[in-house]
């Protein structure tokens, strides 16, 4: 009896630790997408940005020996890809969803192509904070190794909410996203605000990618991402375009994704491959229950309704 209780606690802690580990890339990509969408554009290409970020982050860390330089390089790659997206989308008749799909393809292809020599070598990884050192249990210790990037992301979420609400630039982004006409009447350059928002969003997605290669699961391989960049787009809808909700939603998704491996680790192997589908099924259910065909979603930027 005592033993089962202990193992239940272990599972719980493993799931929480896993939620943080697996949820961190979701957090960064969804914050980036949140910023882009608040300016009135959808960037589906963040999946490609994530892969490029993972590859350049790993490469830069391997060449320079500093994982933080890797994180910066990953972010800058994201800025470039975001700039390409914004530049294409501001042309007439160019559909931003299609551009996103194209950038997803190109980003993934470039990452595979350029990352070929990076499969073998090992690069310096990001350090972790050992919050579990109070416990003797190795399970708890492993679960509570929190990465610094997660802490940064968790602080960034409320900071971004503050930015939208109280800062001048946050007002610009919201106005452009809510009504491009009103923004033009205010004398704002709509395309420029959207370009900066998409580039900053790309930066965050790139950083999210560097977490994949420099911390968890770590290393560079072609199977590193399995659609996290796209799920983050759905996650932003679920989070009602609110950065703080993005944080909670990322943790929830991380927990869903970590369920299968955790159950397998305690010997429940049946349906292992079905549990792979858990985060996708969860996303779909959430989208079905929270969307509506008759009214716009609360919190949805007005200009997004064109592309919904």
């Amino acid at each position: 009896m005592n033993e089962t209780e202990f193992s239940l606690l272990n599972i719980l802690i493993a799931v929480i630790g896993g939620a943080i580990r697996v949820g961190t890339p979701f957090l960064f990509v969804s914050l980036g997408e949140c910023l882009t969408e608040r300016s009135g554009r959808i960037n589906l290409g963040l999946e490609g940005t994530l892969m490029m970020g993972a590859m350049t982050g790993y490469g830069a860390s391997y060449l320079s020996g500093s994982p933080w330089l890797g994180v910066m390089a990953a972010g800058m790659t994201g800025v470039i890809l975001g700039g390409v997206h914004a530049l294409l989308c501001q042309q007439q008749k160019v559909n931003d969803i299609a551009v996103g799909i194209a950038l997803m393809l190109l980003g993934t292809g470039l990452a595979f192509f350029l990352g070929k020599p990076l499969i073998q070598p090992t690069a310096a990884h990001l350090p972790a904070l050992h919050l579990g050192s109070w416990s003797d249990s190795p399970v708890i210790q492993a679960a509570l190794d929190i990465n610094v990037l997660f802490v940064m992301g968790a602080l960034l979420a409320p900071a971004m909410a503050w930015f939208f609400r109280y800062s001048r630039w946050g007002l610009y982004v919201r106005t452009v996203g809510e009504s491009a006409d009103a923004a033009r009447a205010m004398g704002l350059n709509v395309n420029r605000v959207r370009m900066y928002s998409t580039m900053a969003g790309g930066f965050l997605a790139g950083v999210g990618g560097s977490f994949l290669s420099l911390y968890y699961p770590g290393g560079w391989s072609e199977g590193l991402s399995s659609g996290q960049g796209l799920m983050a787009v759905a996650l932003v809808i679920f989070a009602r375009w609110n950065p703080v909700y993005c944080l909670y939603a990322s943790l929830l998704f991380g927990a869903a994704a970590t369920l299968g491996p955790t159950l397998q680790s305690i010997g429940m192997t049946w349906g292992y491959y079905l549990f792979h589908a858990a985060p996708y099924v969860l996303t779909l259910i959430i989208m079905i229950t929270t969307s509506s065909s008759t009214r716009l979603l609360s919190g949805m930027p007005g200009q997004l309704s064109n592309v919904k």
Binding site: V84, L88, V99, I101, A102, L103, L105, L106, G107, T108, G109, L110, F112, F113
Partner: peptide, 9 residues
């Protein structure tokens, strides 16, 4: 894949 991505864009 790279070629396809470039063509698409």
């Amino acid at each position: 894949l790279v070629l396809q991505g470039i063509i698409f864009i």
